[in-house]
Computed example of a mutant assay.
Amino acid sequence: MLELSILGFLAEEPLHGYELKERIKALSGHVRPVSDGALYPAINRLVAAGSLEQRTEDGVSAAPRRVLSLTEKGREDLLERLRHPRQQDVTDHVRFNTVLAFLHRLPDRREQAAVLRRRLVFLETPASFFYRDGQPVRAEEAGGLFRQGMLRIARATGEAERAWLREAIELLSRADPGDSPATAR
């Protein structure tokens, strides 16, 4: 997801490493911190793969800084990652939010809707934090105030997300294919 975030933010505009790190932290750093030890090797991998270009420019009152920008290969890589997110990128809430943050970059509404459908199918599969005899435990069946709270919050969040996904899929499905994806955002 770190590489997807890098590609996604650089699709918006060229950035230097610190600015990029701050944007990634704002997106998911409150849940999954971004360390320099993870960010800069990921940037270097993307540069080596030809997905990013880097140039040096003078710093305002500091040493020169490295500015990163997306290459055409990087744009193609971003679109491919958005078209075909890995299963864990669909099932993990934080990872899926990262996909959502950049999904508008896909030019085809059908492809956008297909990604949302994958998430909806996952959310419609009965699940729980707790199981009894192989079956998910519902909030009303959970022992204790705190487990009930976990399950009730998860149920409410899941209901809200499923409702939004259905609305978004419907909007993307009925929109005129000639419209730009921005009108469906």
Rank of each mutant, 00 (worst) to 15 (best):
M1D: 07
L2M: 09
S5Y: 05
I6N: 02
G8S: 05
E12L: 14
P14C: 02
L15G: 01
H16S: 10
G17R: 13
Y18T: 14
Y18D: 14
E19L: 10
L20A: 10
K21G: 06
K21E: 11
R23A: 05
I24C: 05
L27C: 00
L27V: 02
V31M: 11
P33D: 02
P33M: 03
V34T: 12
V34N: 03
G37Y: 11
A38E: 09
L39V: 07
L39F: 10
Y40G: 01
Y40I: 01
P41G: 06
A42N: 01
I43K: 09
N44W: 11
N44D: 15
V47C: 03
V47N: 00
S51V: 03
Q54H: 11
Q54K: 15
R55D: 06
E57Q: 10
D58S: 14
A62I: 11
A62R: 14
P64G: 05
R65V: 15
R66D: 00
L68N: 03
L68A: 01
L70V: 06
L70E: 04
T71F: 04
T71A: 02
G74D: 01
E76G: 14
E76I: 14
E76S: 15
E80I: 06
E80L: 14
R81Q: 14
H84Q: 08
H84A: 12
H84L: 08
P85S: 04
R86E: 15
R86D: 14
R86V: 15
Q87S: 06
D89I: 01
V90R: 08
V90N: 08
T91V: 06
D92N: 11
H93E: 10
H93L: 10
V94Y: 13
V94W: 12
V94S: 11
R95W: 09
F96W: 07
N97Q: 12
T98A: 11
T98C: 07
V99Y: 07
L100V: 12
L100M: 15
A101N: 13
L103H: 01
L103A: 02
H104L: 08
H104R: 13
R105Q: 07
R105Y: 04
L106V: 06
P107N: 02
P107W: 08
E111T: 07
Q112E: 09
Q112R: 15
A113E: 06
A114N: 03
V115L: 13
V115N: 11
L116H: 14
R119L: 11
F122E: 01
F122G: 00
L123Y: 05
L123H: 06
L123K: 08
E124M: 13
F129L: 15
F130G: 00
Y131E: 02
D133T: 05
D133F: 04
G134M: 12
Q135L: 13
V137W: 02
V137N: 00
R138Y: 00
A139I: 01
E140H: 03
E140K: 09
A142Y: 03
G144Q: 03
L145G: 00
F146Y: 11
F146P: 00
Q148T: 09
M150D: 05
A154R: 05
G158N: 13
E159L: 10
A163R: 09
A163L: 11
W164A: 02
W164M: 06
R166K: 10
R166L: 06
R166Y: 02
A168Y: 04
E170M: 05
L171Y: 00
S173E: 15
T183N: 02
A184H: 10
R185D: 13
